[in-house]
Amino acid sequence: MHNKEKHIVIIGGGTAGCVAAGRLAREGYRISLIEKDKKPGGKINNWYQLFPDRRRSVEVTDYINKEIDHPLIDLMTGTELDKVKYKNGKFSISTGKSDLGQADAVLIATGFDLFDATRKEEYGYGIYDNVITSLDLENMFHSGDILTTKEEIPKRVGIVHCVGSRDEKVGNFHCSKVCCVTAVKQAIEIKEHIPDSEVFCFYMDMRMFGPYYEELYRESQEKWVVNYIRGKVSEVSENIEGRLVIKAEDTLLGKPIRMEVDMLVLMVGMQNAKAGLNLQDKFGIQTGVNGFFRIRDNHYGNNLSNVDGLFYAGTCTAPMNITDTISHARAAAVEITEYLSKN
């Protein structure tokens, strides 16, 4: 098959990069898959259960690992891209370790970074003991214990939505899309672990955009009696007993509300990954106002960059859930196949 003579470099071995690699390898292309971490799979490796069905995340990582189990895929972990030269539609690429030779197409699938919660100082992350992020909570789920730093079972947990998203103060105007449903999922998991605890979600809008998300939200109310308060938490402090005191407006009542919690979970948003942004100058690519890579067309060109032969897949272009990331990666494979058949 003459496809074998064509070489594609994929940067990023998370969900998007791996799914695209699998598709393209099965088309007969030779793939170099570069991953900066020690193993592929990306951010899902950190998650314990996934919304909306709360399946174990390892089921999806197993799928991803099977995707890249193909003789035409050369997976290079612990590797980062070093130099790029672009001439007549072909890329010459080297990593710090080796020269990858010429690539006929490049797919950027560098994903996202979670917002650094210390930047929202008023929430006290890194200052107060029991202010944690959604990621820290996933680690607790992994370990099986949800405990405060004093090793006590929290009686009341607060969840703050939109931390680092929809917030001009940190320069992020966009909605990270998946944190509302993550909050709902985590609220349920907390109630499951600690049935007599109370959980309060402080939200600006509940954005249940995906299939079965609204149903999960409903379940959280009906079965688990999770409480939702529409209002942005404005500040957090610690009282003498070491409990956290949060202030917000209960906007549906038009009144300020104050309550103590034993643990506060910050739903940190998504930003374009640093690893991706580092590629900007090397490839001459652009970002949009949201900081993610700018796609050529919002409706039908969402895998295309401003450089011919250079494509995008996954959350380097916008916040996405896993389902959409997989679809986006498959679509990238179609775009690349079409491009290579013409060039």
Binding site: R218, Q221, E222, I257, R258, M259
Partner: peptide, 25 residues
Amino acid sequence: RVIDFDRNDKRVFEYVLEREPSFAL
């Protein structure tokens, strides 16, 4: 005007919720 959630008496809420679970929705 502040809702002092920790001081407030939630017995009415509990009474209603127990007898009318749809209230949670």
